[in-house]
Amino acid sequence: MTLLLITGVVLVLVSITLVGMAIAKPQAQGVHRSIAVLEAMSTAPSELTEELNQPFSERVLEPLQARALKIGKRFTGADSSDRIRRKLDLAGNPRNLTVDQIIAGKVIGAVIGLALSVGVTALLGTSFSLRVVAIAAGVVIGFMAPNLYLYQSAYDRSARLQRELPDAIDLMTICVESGLGFDAAVQQVAANTEGPLAEEFARVLREMQIGQSRAEALRALADRTNVPEVRSFVSAMVQADSFGIPIAQVLRVQSSEIRVKRRQRAEEKAQQVPVKITIPLIFCILPTLFIAVMGPAAISIMENFKG
Rank of each mutant, 00 (worst) to 15 (best):
L48G: 04
G72D: 01
V234F: 04
A240E: 03
V132M: 09
Q101K: 05
L171T: 00
F56M: 13
K261W: 00
G113R: 01
M172W: 06
G295K: 08
L64A: 15
L18Q: 10
L18W: 13
A28C: 02
G181D: 07
R203H: 05
G295A: 01
I245N: 07
I102F: 04
V133L: 13
V19T: 15
L69Q: 03
I35H: 14
E268A: 12
V132D: 03
E216N: 03
T7K: 11
D82I: 07
Q254C: 02
I245Y: 08
A91V: 02
K261G: 08
S117Y: 00
N53T: 01
P274R: 06
M21C: 02
Y149W: 10
K73Y: 10
L205G: 08
P196L: 07
L286R: 05
P280K: 09
V60S: 05
R259N: 06
F56D: 12
D223Q: 09
I84S: 06
G109L: 01
I299T: 03
V139Q: 06
Q101R: 13
G138A: 07
L197G: 04
K25F: 10
G113H: 04
F128I: 01
I282P: 09
S57A: 08
L52V: 05
I35L: 04
L90M: 10
S256I: 00
A44Y: 05
N226H: 15
T121C: 02
T17P: 04
G211H: 01
D223R: 13
F290V: 14
R163M: 01
V275Y: 06
D89V: 02
V273H: 06
I169N: 07
L130A: 15
V132A: 15
A115I: 09
A159R: 14
E267L: 13
M237A: 08
E207H: 08
